[in-house]
Computed example of a mutant assay.
Amino acid sequence: MSQRRRFLHIGLGALAVAGIAATGASCVAKTPNNVSCGDEVRPAIDCSSEIAPGDIGVLNLDSDSAAFEDVAIRRITAETEKYVAAHTRLCRDYNACAIDKAKYDEEKKALLQLLSPMGSMVAAVKGASSEGERRAALDTLYQHAVPEAERKEEVTLSLSMEAELPASAGGGVRVVRPDEPLPTNTRVYFKVEVKPRAYVYIFQNNTSSGLSVLFPDERIGTKNPLEGGNASRIPSGDLRFRLNDKDIGFEDVYIAASRTPLPNLDEALARVRDGKVTRIKDDKLLDGMKHLPVEGAVAKKDSKCRDVGLERCPRVRGLELDLGGGSSPQPGFKPASFVARTEPGDGLILKVFSFEHTSEGVAYEKAAKNYAKLPAPKTRGVVILERTRTRGVVILE
């Protein structure tokens, strides 16, 4: 378990959530007292043991929790209180003859379907053994408890890097997977899909050729924001990027996505496009992204983590969703290099996608064979990238 964050016992809030289903299920006759509803005589249901909304504190986290995580927890708590209050009102309406038994049973069943799983979901957050596992567990709870309309900043991003291999590598088009090798003279383009509408930023840093802004770029047609639910090709039309032979090694493409514009990043990339910034170390924000700390690393006094304008102490952000072995992504998305969703309460996806740039011929063949032997990455609730590498270059053809 990460030493950066300590867990408090869930306490009364957890007991309340875990006991909701049992409370609802035990709504039985309080006494032999009956309720007369016209010609119908029904046993009175005991509503006095219902949990008061103020008793529900779904999670008690330490004070060093991220601000967006606090937002998520408040929303989970508020929605849980609503469900419990609705359950109490339902019980009282039944006793007041406002609804019949069939209606009571139907609505009670719907509420219990929401409330019953929450105890185990909370326990999964508490019992997580790593930061990645914990974020995934909190995401499961958040997605279950909080309606989509209340997840106001949530964004899902599907990015597919599609490569047209040169004849020397057998030709053909493929969706590039993380860390997959690609030879010089490969042509590539991105297919990006967001839900809902969002602003997307893509740039690359290379040790010899410097910074390259891949998107937004007025020359390629597609513009921000990208409309939700539609795949956008970057660059548009028949344009493609080409891997030249100036750098060999791992290439890193930086991706950010948000429902709202990111002015600081927009300004930084504009300086790159205008030629005012050519090296990543000359821009505080971009250099901070280059030094994204390894996931799960313990923060140290000599850490390069700093306030770069997007957040204090940047880290890779967003939950990567299960691609089902690489060919069957999340419902509604076509095969992709990765699919990510903002973490609970967060409004920013910040990722680094890497691939290996090799020379043509024997070097590529060897790298491809080695890559084929690697196990498929497990991406549910974790981040694939574990290092930052900045060699190679992609140029607009």
Rank of each mutant, 00 (worst) to 15 (best):
A98T: 08
G57W: 11
F7T: 08
L114M: 12
Y94I: 08
D105G: 00
R89P: 01
Y83C: 01
I51Y: 04
I20L: 15
V122Y: 00
P43T: 04
S129I: 09
T88S: 13
V35A: 13
A137N: 06
I51R: 04
D70K: 05
S48D: 13
A21I: 01
V41Q: 09
L59P: 00
D70M: 03
K109R: 15
L15R: 11
I56H: 03
E81K: 10
T140C: 02
S63W: 14
A102R: 14
A102I: 12
D93T: 01
D93H: 09
Q113W: 08
I45G: 10
I10H: 00
D70I: 06
A67H: 05
L115I: 14
A137M: 02
V84A: 10
L61F: 08
S49L: 10
C37S: 07
S65Y: 02
L112A: 07
A21M: 03
S48L: 08
L15D: 04
G119N: 03
E107D: 15
V28I: 13
S49F: 12
A18L: 12
V71E: 05
G57T: 12
K101G: 00
K126T: 09
V122I: 12
N33H: 14
R89Y: 02
R42M: 01
K82R: 12
A16K: 02
P32S: 11
G24N: 07
A123T: 09
T23Y: 08
P117S: 08
Y83E: 06
A44I: 03
D93C: 04
S49M: 09
K109A: 15
N33P: 11
I76P: 09
E40R: 08
A123V: 07
K126V: 10
K126W: 13
A128G: 04
L61V: 14
E107G: 01
P32G: 14
P43A: 05
L90C: 05
V84P: 06
D93E: 13
S130L: 03
C47D: 04
E107R: 04
T80P: 01
L8Q: 06
A66S: 15
E50C: 15
K108M: 14
I99K: 02
A18W: 06
I20Y: 07
Y94W: 10
T23E: 11
P43F: 03
G19P: 02
A25K: 14
F7M: 14
G38C: 06
L111A: 05
L8T: 02
L112I: 06
S130D: 09
S49Q: 12
R92I: 04
G54C: 05
S63G: 09
A44K: 11
G54L: 07
D139P: 00
D55I: 06
V35P: 04
K30A: 11
N60S: 10
R89C: 02
A86M: 10
M121R: 10
S63Q: 11
G127K: 11
